[in-house]
Design a binder for these strands. Structure first.
Lengths: 258, 258
DNA sequence: ACGACCTATCTTGTATACAAGATTGCGAGG
DNA sequence: CCTCGCAATCTTGTATACAAGATAGGTCGT
């Protein structure tokens, strides 16, 4: 991510390269945010676990203030839930909320794929191809953390190819939240995931907006179905839960999203 | 919003009515958030204006801490921009960002209208009718603040009718951000706005998902066009700016969104 | 033994204090 | 007259302290 900045400049005034440079050394709060987010997404903290300010402050060797602000920032991202005067916990989502998130994500990913197919930015497409190859190669190995990272990277690149930063931000937020839900079973179907990525990218390259949108939408919905199915059978094995919404739940969405 | 809670209960154990009751008396931070957001959306603070923690703390007669957290919360909503060690300012959006926000909002509103039309929740529809009548009545009078409030209310109700809270939250955030951009010219075309609201609601009542989505999308895009046109002629009058993107910019989006 | 109340403890909410980065204006030197 | 540099000031970042709300465990009464 960081480019060489120091090199000699031929021009008289050295132009401000990249960010205003003061933004580089981050406040403690941001470091805590990044660390906490990573810990949550990696599953180091489980859903529902309490996040006590004092304990985190001690862990990170900082005062409570940066920790507090970090927690609030993550709450805004939807990764932690805070109850007034009762503290924060790692967010957990009901089946209904999970379904809602997936439907919205499907719609947004479809929109973005459409935009990307419309633009066909050659640079982004080249970068996406690289990521795709890397992903398909690693899909067999099965290092979960690395696969999650590559998946995130692919989706980030696709978002960049859509050239709508507002949309990209929303998609990233929703992706992190769904990843949090999926975390227990994250390595599920990596090969199929990357096959779908390939198909989406091909449609983008072909400039086929309709197809790109359709495939992107299905990509999200199918991942959601895989999760909900697994969660249901898992629940049935444990507590013999009633026939809750599952694969069927999302079918209606498929028909309309792109 | 606050219901009567004290009344005698016939049941042996008084059931927790509504929220856990401890959530009622809000922390100072939340009060500051609400106040600041209202002040920003009402135009009391203009775009780009600095938000100095000390000054706000003194204004509100609280310490800097709640103010800090409030500013960060509003930053997460996209209403203020913070630069590290340089403080916060009321957010301002470029033409490109505004266009992006409008396109995303159009997509989400379309999705929500589709969901609402699918559900046809009788209760919500009745409430929406009330709001619609009130809105059309007031559209002629032209009290800008009241119209903004009613518009927000209508969209909130429509979101509730869609029964997807994740979607509703995102729509509210985007609506507030666009309202911030539109603020200077907010009273623009109130009559047409409420005519569009009426058409959307009719499509929802008829259960016509396609039409509801189409109309909702257009509703957002047309409001965006009105704004961009006004902004452009305004800019041309002042600084004779080049022919920037405007009405044309959003046309491509119209063809595909629903 | 069971339940209600009361207290000890933990945790969050708010305030204040201090350190360090950013900005601005003035003065010295060219 | 302009520019460079320094310093005074303003503002944010972080830490610490204290107040008040929530929780849990024990004790007393029945």
């Amino acid at each position: 991510m960081s480019e060489a900045i120091a090199g000699r400049q031929e021009e008289g005034v050295l132009e401000a390269e990249g960010p205003p440079l003061g933004e580089l050394h981050a406040p403690l709060r941001d470091l805590v945010v990044d660390r906490l987010r990573a810990d949550i997404l990696s599953g180091r903290y489980k859903s529902g676990e309490r996040l006590v300010e004092d304990r985190l402050a001690e862990d990170f060797k900082v005062s409570r203030n940066p920790v507090r602000e970090a927690i609030r920032a993550l709450a805004a991202e939807g990764l932690v839930a805070v109850a007034p005067r009762r503290g924060a916990t790692v967010a957990g989502f009901s089946t209904a909320e999970t379904r809602e998130m997936i439907e919205v994500r499907a719609t947004l990913e479809a929109m973005n794929a459409r935009l990307a197919a419309r633009r066909r930015d050659p640079g982004m497409i080249a970068t996406l191809m690289e990521c795709l190859n890397e992903g398909q190669r690693r899909a067999g190995e099965g290092d979960p953390a690395e696969l999650v990272r590559l998946n995130a990277h692919f989706h980030d690149l696709l978002a960049a190819a859509g050239h709508n930063r507002i949309l990209g931000d929303l998609m990233r937020q929703l992706r992190e939240r769904t990843n949090l839900v999926f975390a227990p079973r994250s390595a599920n179907g990596a090969a199929q995931t990357w096959e779908e990525h390939r198909a989406i990218l091909e449609a983008v390259i072909a400039g086929d907006e309709e197809l790109a949108a359709l495939l992107a939408s299905r990509h999200v919905l199918q991942a959601g179905e895989r999760h909900l199915e697994a969660a249901q059978t898992e629940a049935a094995a444990g507590g013999e839960a009633g026939p809750t919404a599952s694969a069927v739940t999302l079918e209606a969405a498929k028909a309309r999203s792109p």
